[in-house]
Design a protein around this nucleic acid. Structure first.
Length: 462
RNA sequence: GUGGUUAUAGCUCAGUUGGCAGAGCAUCGGAUUGUGGUUCCGAGUGUCGUGGGUUCGAGCCCCACUAUCCACCCCA
């Protein structure tokens, strides 16, 4: 028991069944991405630490997996440094690479590095694992897959709308009922400005992000604990208590944020996004901005931690399962600026494949027939029959049929059990009589019926 | 980083006041020497997470460690 091999905390093996289900998710997502003209890229698992550090805030830097330098990494560390240097400074000496933390920052690096070869607007998707040195728990892993779609090089809000449509279509195909929460960083900035605390935007958003979890009283308490003046907290109350339809909320907000340029800009952006989305749905109603397709909710409590977002931000939650967000993203106006390429706006979202997997599992929403790949198994009674089956198998494979030959002529019961456990729909039994007749006994594993058939008949039947 | 949970057969878990180590599922064999899924019969498997302590005696009580899951922080 204790000596059994294991894998690192927060990582997982995937069995054939799990892979079949994961591929179902990936294939569904990919096919929707393609419908909107996004093309796939990949980037390396490891990036230079200089690329990753400082992009995810203080917390993010701590959660980066860092790779120890190859060779004599110890040479760079003097006794003096060991005693005096900070952890960060010491880390820089012994590690210059790290595992990617998400796909967005490597993508920004990709865009800047390959800018000469890229036609803008650039629409790419990327499905790869990312790593975070987090403490694992439900729906949280140290290695997990993200499915990112981003479009960079355009300010058009049509991109936001396309992403919303993609969300809608992916979850429609997967059969998951979801709600999409939307907000805008500019509105959050406007709120901070209006209550007179523009530089406290991060503390404010982090606190109100918890509103539906811990309640308004605790949010207020946390804001006061963080050192916000009572007047500012009081000024915030009408904003936290907004209600009604999205349109009504925006109207109320417009009053509150009157005269605040950045806040009004955010409101205008959301109005445009709602209008464009409504226009894109067949029964859309421009007057109400309440399209029927997907439940979209303006949620001022939505903040999102990654601090490179500057415009609209999204988060998607499953309605029928208790789980963190399964998709999230937003617009970032200047992510490439960090890498020396300013004025390239981008917007993107990320589907959390592993959480989607957990949601589908809990709701039992996987299609039945995901697993079987083999169409026909040859079961044989002896060495001669085995060779005979080999020839047939080759012929069938040339016709595009997935065929297995049971590798040894053991007891029929064992060979049948194998077919059964792999859900192989047909078994061709080969014995002396069949060989003499130049046929095989084809058994339908579902109905139990069997018949003697020639190769030509076999091709027709399976 | 903080708090809690759990750790017993391949898997899921029982195990009473401290007194012989258990069940279901899975696996294997047989009923059925050319036929799976259903049924019946039979069989095997344990460093009770690791190390120490208390006790005549510890799976059970105490301590430490490790792993695990859950919650917080943060996030997909």
């Amino acid at each position: 028991m204790a000596q059994k091999p294991s894998i690192p905390k927060g990582t997982r093996d995937f069995s054939p069944l799990e892979m079949a289900r994961r591929n179902y998710i990936f294939d569904t997502i990919k096919s929707v991405f393609s419908l909107y003209g996004f093309q796939q890229i990949e980037t390396p698992a490891m990036e230079n630490l200089s690329t990753l550090m400082g992009k995810y805030g203080e917390e993010g830097d701590k959660l980066l997996f860092k790779i120890l330098n190859s060779g004599d990494w110890k040479a760079a560390v003097t006794h003096e440094a060991l005693d005096n240097a900070t952890i960060g400074a010491l880390t820089n000496k012994v590690s210059e690479k790290g595992l990617r933390y998400d796909l967005t920052v490597p993508f920004a690096r990709f865009v800047v590095q390959h800018r000469e070869d890229i036609q803008f607007p650039f629409k790419r998707y990327q499905i790869q694992p990312v790593w975070r040195a987090d403490r694992p728990q439900k729906g949280r892993y140290r290695e997990f897959y993200q499915c990112d779609v981003d479009v960079v090089g355009t300010n058009s809000l049509l991109s936001e709308v396309e992403l919303i449509q993609i969300v809608e279509e992916v979850y429609r195909r997967l059969g998951i009922r979801v709600s999409l929460h939307i907000n805008n960083r500019k509105i959050l900035a406007g709120i901070a400005e209006v209550i007179g605390q523009p530089e406290r935007i991060i503390d404010i958003t982090v606190a109100i992000d918890k509103l539906d979890k811990i309640g308004i009283d605790n949010v207020n308490k946390e804001l006061l604990d963080k050192g916000l003046p009572q007047e500012a907290v009081d000024a915030l109350q009408p904003i936290l208590n907004l209600s009604g339809t999205n349109t009504e909320k925006l109207d109320q907000l417009e009053q509150v944020l009157a005269g605040c340029e950045v806040g009004l800009k955010g409101i205008e952006e959301l109005r445009t996004i709602f209008a464009l989305y409504a226009a894109s749905t067949q029964d859309g109603n421009l007057a109400t901005y309440e399209p029927s397709g997907l439940q979209i909710e303006l949620d001022l409590c939505l903040a999102r931690g990654l601090n490179y977002y500057t415009g609209a931000i999204f988060e998607v939650k499953a309605l029928d399962v208790q789980m963190g967000s399964i998709t999230g993203g937003g617009r970032y106006d200047n992510l490439t600026g960090i890498f020396g390429m300013p004025n390239v706006s981008g917007v993107g979202i990320s589907f959390g494949a592993d959480r989607i997997y957990d949601v589908l599992s809990e709701l039992n929403l996987y299609p039945e027939n995901l697993q079987s790949t083999t169409q026909l198994l040859f079961a044989t009674f002896g060495e001669q029959e085995l060779l005979y089956a080999l020839g047939w198998a080759k012929a069938l494979r040339e016709k595009g049929v997935s065929v297995e030959v049971y590798p040894e002529p053991t007891k029929m019961k064992k060979q049948m059990s194998y077919a059964d456990s792999k859900k192989i729909p047909f078994v061709a039994i080969v014995g002396g009589d069949e060989m003499t007749a130049g046929k095989v006994m084809l058994k339908n594993m579902l109905s139990g019926e069997q018949q003697l058939v020639t190769l030509e008949e076999l091709v027709q039947l399976v």
